[in-house]
Design a protein around this nucleic acid. Structure first.
Lengths: 346, 346
DNA sequence: TACCGATCTTGAAATGTTTCACACCCTAGA
DNA sequence: TCTAGGGTGTGAAACATTTCAAGATCGGTA
């Protein structure tokens, strides 16, 4: 690991070859096909590398080989642990395939997303995984048309012209609200928005479906819209909820994600409400903080890591398998009941 | 934005030049020095690029130019929102300098950290920011010796052979415990570990300093060690705390970070303890979830984004300024008092 | 000794971009 | 008509690597 005095330029294969007294090709063989070079030569070359502190120049490698060694995941909201867990799953799979993973964060902004994508295309990454701000945005189609392996995460592809991985959000909405009805609640709020977000729309749809199927009056499922899926918005929804006249006030809330639920929970506790007795709460995603809340949160679990691993598997298949067929992988969400919805009412 | 039918190979400057009827050099000029080419030629070239769907090949660019357009941040624990916030700060600064940021996560594992670093060196990134598992690990020295701009984040450099950015952790420990003493607590637990982590050692040191300076008996500051700085470990510390004989049991806990504090808080609430009356809690970092906890958490705030921005500034200076001098930027932590420590006791 | 096959090594070509010295074309001035 | 010089455009070289056809070496055998 020792090094020559720095002379400005990083040592190249050429320098290694000279130091070891072999040709460029041999050095390259040591790097890429060690088995074809004799043990003694290999050793000599490796010693030279160590002495010079040689590190392969990845841009040159990539330029010549025509293929990068990296995947990328563009996540929607770095502040939401859900996406971090998905990224972990992707990284596990990438690691196994000996690929790097670039993690980017669009922060729900289309311009940031576009900028990231542009850079990733310039980098010629092997594949792009993304939870998009808008699944129909033209710059996404662009990626596909370019022939870059592409998988949509946490959103199902409508057109079917690329792979996608997601849970069944409608079903998720159904099981959340069914759980609340089971617990005896007769007036329930759905907290979430904006409805430009597909996940929000579908979770609400599932909620409404099961609500009417079980014969509950339509006006007793109240939609409390939010501007974003954040803790703060959850708190502010809590204020609005508290402001409702008591005969209209729901006894339970189903939040479009756990961040909203945590915000709502906090507001409820600080307003002196007892959870679940005065207000039951169900979240969505089942992030670790949900279980860790002061009143542990009932939540609709998504298999976060598995979502990521599957997405990575699909993108790798698209990258390497000539017979690749696009696939829409759907997972089934599961209710995880905790203290925030307590036991049966009354 | 339309494209030729894909013919397998992505279009290169050569193709663009041919399509526009100009030379390679001119295309490159349009890309890099638009001002030296006449408006009409430029337009023609740009049209050709659009028609072919040309995207610059970054590896070739980097190989020739000898310089990458990216920074990297290797964070210690992607599951801790603190590091996400630091990364946001770095990204802001990188964005302003028109650089990409690669975010990696070592997950507190030396081998993952080493692997990431190795890849980043191969990529020839312009600079590396890192919150290291072990600040004295030899592979870190290696980076510096290689001449890659390098900044340590959330840890102060001892040797001074590179830049670093951190808050004064000893001071942080002092203000946390001083606050508890002010509130009238006479028996306090420090929750945190392992002590291989410098931050933990220093926060404990600060706690001990102020404890003895204010004349409190040494044996009344109890150290509850943990295996990691996670919510789960916080919960388990809560169990151990509850198991102490009541005359030894502290009335307040200072946790080495907010995740521990949240775990401890959850255990306390579920065990029926009133916070802050039966147990007051102070965290460290002031992540967003601290304020959002059911009992909002008193915490020692670190300027998370600013830490990141400053680190990015330093690494950029090292990368571009020939007169760069290594700098240890220290920030002052501040106590943010919330409900979890309530008001004065008795 | 000559030849063979196996094993190992070589060196040139190719990858897509940027750079830079130079050539070209005008126009203006002598 | 010639020259100077600004404004444009050109094309070859360079960057660090990989690949691959071909060459070298060696031990063994006819």
């Amino acid at each position: 690991m020792s090094q020559q005095p720095r002379n400005g330029r990083a040592p190249s294969v050429k320098d290694v070859a000279a130091a070891a007294g072999v040709s460029l090709g041999t050095v390259s063989n040591v790097l890429n096909r060690p088995s074809v070079v004799s043990a003694t030569t290999r050793e000599r070359v490796e010693r030279a590398m160590a002495e010079l502190g040689f590190v392969r120049n990845e841009s040159a490698r990539q330029l010549r080989a025509g293929t990068s060694r990296a995947l990328a995941y563009v996540m929607l909201d770095g502040g939401n642990p859900f996406f971090h867990d998905v990224a972990e799953g992707i990284e596990t799979a990438a690691e196994a395939a000996d690929l790097s993973l670039f993690v980017c964060n669009s922060n729900s902004r289309v311009d940031r997303e576009a900028k990231h994508l542009d850079r990733l295309v310039q980098q010629r990454v092997q594949g792009i995984l993304i939870t998009p701000v808008d699944p129909d945005a033209p710059h996404l189609q662009e990626i596909g048309r370019r022939g870059i392996p592409f998988v949509m995460v946490d959103r199902l592809s409508s057109g079917g012209d690329h792979c996608s991985v997601a849970v069944d959000d409608v079903l998720g909405g159904r099981i959340a609200v069914e759980h609340l009805i089971d617990r005896g609640h007769e007036r329930v709020a759905f907290v979430g928005g904006p409805s430009s977000i597909g996940q929000v729309r579908e979770r609400l749809q599932g909620a409404r479906e099961v609500w009417s199927e079980l014969g509950m009056p339509e006006e007793d499922l109240i939609h409390l819209p939010t501007e974003a899926l954040t803790v703060n918005e959850g708190r502010s929804a809590g204020e609005r909820l508290a402001g409702l006249p008591s005969r209209r006030r729901p006894t339970a809330a189903f939040c479009a994600n756990d961040l909203l639920a945590l915000g709502l929970l906090q507001h409820a506790v600080s307003a002196g409400l007892r959870v679940p007795d005065d207000l039951a709460i169900v979240g969505f995603d089942d992030i670790d903080f949900a279980a860790a809340a002061a009143v542990p949160l009932t939540s609709v679990r998504q298999p976060r890591q598995e979502l990521g691993r599957t997405a990575a598997r699909l993108v790798l298949d698209e990258a390497t398998n000539p017979d690749h067929e696009h696939e829409q992988a759907t997972f089934v969400p599961a209710l995880v009941a905790r203290a925030s919805t307590g036991t049966v009412r009354r």
